[in-house]
Design a protein around this nucleic acid. Structure first.
Lengths: 327, 327
DNA sequence: ATGAAAGCGCTAACAT
DNA sequence: ATGTTAGCGCTTTCAT
C-alpha cells in the first residue's frame, strides 16, 4: 500500500507537499511542476488515499448510518435507497442497520456506530427506543428520527400524519356505504400503527358504527400464521378490511393462498401502495406516503446538523395521498 | 470526548494499561484492582472507544460493503438483510451501496470503499462490471460476487442455475399443455436474465414450439410504461407469460391496473416468489431462490478470505424450487 | 513554494 | 504487573 510518504520519498520532497497536492489544496501554494510530478507518481505507484487516517486526523468519517427495523421491508428499502442517493451526492456513505424491532439491538448498534465515529444517524426508533435516542443525543451525534415519533425525545422528526390519513380515508370508505370494517395490524406498539388504529376507531365512532369496531393483532414474528387463522372467520364476515401496513397486508395475501380467500366483493384498504398486488377485481383504497421526499428531508436535516448550522429540532409532517378505485 | 489518555491521567497510570483493560486483553497482565478502577473510571467519564483510531492502528476496519443495484428491490433487500445479520454476528458492520446498474457508479463506489479500508466487498456486478471487479481484486480486497456470474473474473461466486431453473420450469408448464408462452424481461444484459431467456427458448424449441418464441424487453428506467404498452396485445394473445424477474412482474401488474388486465385463464410464471401478489384465481408457477442460504454462504466465503484462509475462488450454485398451483 | 514537526487515539513490542 | 515508545497515514500550523 503506497502512502504519501512513499511518494514524497520517491520525489525527495516532503509529505506535506504531497498532501497539499493530493487533497486539492495546492492552488498557488505548490509549483505547477511539482504538482504534476506528484500526480504522475501517485498514478504510477497506484496510490489510494487512506480515508481512515484522514478521518482520524480531521475528526469526521463521512459516514452516516440509517437504522431501520428491517431493510427487506419494502417501505424501509425505498426510504434507505433514497437517503443513500442523497448522501452520495453530498459525499457520504451509508451504514444500514436492522434493529429487528429490538430495543436492545437498537441501543447496542447505536453505541457501535458512535464508536465508528459516524457523522450522523437517521433512525426509525424501536418501540421503546427512547433511551437509545437520548444516548445518541448525549454524545452530540446528529440525529434525525423518521416514520415514528418519539414524543419525549427532542430530535428532528420526519413522518406523516397517520391519524388523519387513516381517519379521512376511513371516512371516504364509510361514505361509500361500507359498515363492517375490520382492522388488521401488527402486534407491536409503535406510534404509526397506534395512530392509524385511533383514526380507524374515531371514524367508526363518528359514523355511529362503534359496535362494529374490531381489531386483530398479528404477531410480528413467529406465530403470525396462527393469528391470521384465528382472525379468518371474522375477516370473511366483514365488508371491508383495513390493513394498517403493507407488511400485514402481504402476509394476509400469502395466508389466503393457503387457508382460503377473502370475499371478492370485500373492499381492501391499506396503508402504503399495494397496486402491484391487485388484479383488477376489487374495490381498493390505499394511502401513499411520499417516501422520496421524506428521505430527502431527513438527509437535509441531518446534513445541516452535521454542518453545525443553527438548529432547533422540528417535526416535519408530510401529506399523504389516498387513492381508491377498482384495482 | 474522553480518550484512553484521559483515563490514564486521572488514575496516574499509563494508557497502555488502560488499553489492555478496555480491549479485554488484561487476563493476568493487569492487576484486578487496577482493572476495576479503569472500568469504573471509563464508565464515569463516559468513555467510548474510537474505532477509527483502532482501525488505523490495526489495519482493519471491521466494515464490509454490499453493493447491489438497488436496495429497494425486494430480492436485494432480502439478500442484504441476511448478509447484515450474518455480519453482525461476526462483528462487522455493512455499508450498502446502490450501483443503479451503472458500471461507472459501480467502479467509482468501489474506489471509495477501498479508500475507506473496508475489509471486504460482496457485490452484485453491473452489466459490464468486470473492470471494477478486477480493480478490487488488484487491491487485494476480499471479494465475493453474488447473483450474476462474471465469467472472466476470478472471484468467488454465489448464485443459482438460472438456465436450468427456467428450462425445467418451462418444461413443466409445457407439459401441462400451454403452447403460446411469451417471455417478458428487463432490457439489461445481465447473465441471470440472459440465462433465463436461454432456458425459455431451449424448452420451447425442444417442445417443437420454436415458432411461438416471443420475447419482450422492458426498459430498466424511464419509458418502461411504453414498452409494456407495446407488448400489451401480444401478451393478451398468449396463454402463458413468463416474467423473468419479480421486478418486471410487479411492473406488469401495476400497468395492468391502468391499461387492461391479462386474461384470467392465462398462466403466470415468474422468477422469484410472487405468492403475495396472487389472489387465488389463476394458474401460477414460480421459482424460489434460497436467498437466506445464499447470503450466508456469501458472507462465509468473504469472512474466510478476510481471515486469510487458504483460498481458491469457487462457484457455489444453489438449488431452486419450482412451485405451481392455483394461487 | 516547500519543509519540519506535532498530533488525531489507539495498539503492541519491548523494557522494567 | 505496568510503563515507555514508536508508529499507523494523514492534515495543518508554523517556519523558512
Amino acid at each position: 500500500m503506497t502512502s504519501m510518504q512513499d511518494i514524497a520519498d520517491r520525489l525527495n520532497i516532503s509529505k506535506s507537499t504531497v498532501s497539499l497536492v493530493l487533497s486539492g489544496k495546492s492552488d498557488g501554494r505548490v509549483s505547477e511542476a511539482v504538482k504534476q510530478q506528484v500526480l504522475k507518481t501517485a498514478k504510477e505507484m497506484d496510490y489510494h488515499l487512506n480515508e481512515l487516517a484522514r478521518s482520524l486526523r480531521v475528526g469526521s468519517s463521512n459516514l452516516i448510518s440509517v437504522i431501520v427495523t428491517d431493510i427487506s421491508n419494502e417501505f424501509f428499502g425505498q426510504l434507505t435507497f433514497n437517503i443513500q442517493e442523497e448522501a452520495k451526492k453530498a459525499g457520504y456513505l451509508v451504514l444500514t442497520i436492522n434493529s429487528n424491532e429490538s430495543d436492545e439491538e437498537f441501543e447496542q448498534m447505536s453505541r457501535i456506530l458512535i464508536s465508528k465515529k459516524v457523522d450522523g444517524i437517521i433512525a426509525v426508533p424501536t418501540p421503546d427506543g427512547a433511551a437509545a435516542l437520548k444516548m445518541i443525543l448525549d454524545q452530540n451525534v446528529p440525529l434525525v428520527t423518521v416514520d415514528r415519533l418519539c414524543e419525549n425525545v427532542d430530535a428532528d422528526y420526519v413522518g406523516v400524519d397517520n391519524y388523519e390519513a387513516a381517519k379521512s380515508a376511513m371516512q371516504g370508505l364509510l361514505a361509500e356505504g361500507f359498515k363492517k370494517v375490520t382492522l388488521v395490524r401488527l402486534d407491536i406498539d409503535i406510534p404509526p400503527l397506534n395512530e392509524r388504529q385511533r383514526g380507524y376507531e374515531d371514524a367508526m365512532k363518528e359514523a355511529g358504527l362503534a359496535s362494529n369496531i374490531k381489531c386483530h393483532r398479528i404477531r410480528f414474528g413467529e406465530g403470525w400464521e396462527d393469528d391470521f387463522d384465528n382472525a379468518k372467520e371474522s375477516l370473511k364476515a366483514s365488508d371491508a378490511v383495513f390493513f394498517s401496513s403493507r407488511r400485514v397486508f402481504t402476509q394476509a395475501m400469502s395466508m389466503a393462498n393457503k387457508t382460503g380467500r377473502l370475499p371478492k366483493d370485500q373492499c381492501l384498504f391499506c396503508f402504503d401502495d399495494v397496486l402491484p398486488y391487485m388484479n383488477g377485481s376489487r374495490d381498493v383504497r390505499y394511502i401513499e406516503q411520499p417516501v422520496a421526499e421524506m428521505a430527502r428531508k431527513s438527509f437535509e436535516l441531518l446534513l445541516s446538523q452535521i454542518q453545525g448550522k443553527e438548529h432547533t429540532p422540528g417535526r416535519y409532517v408530510f401529506p399523504t395521498k389516498c387513492i381508491s378505485g377498482k384495482f
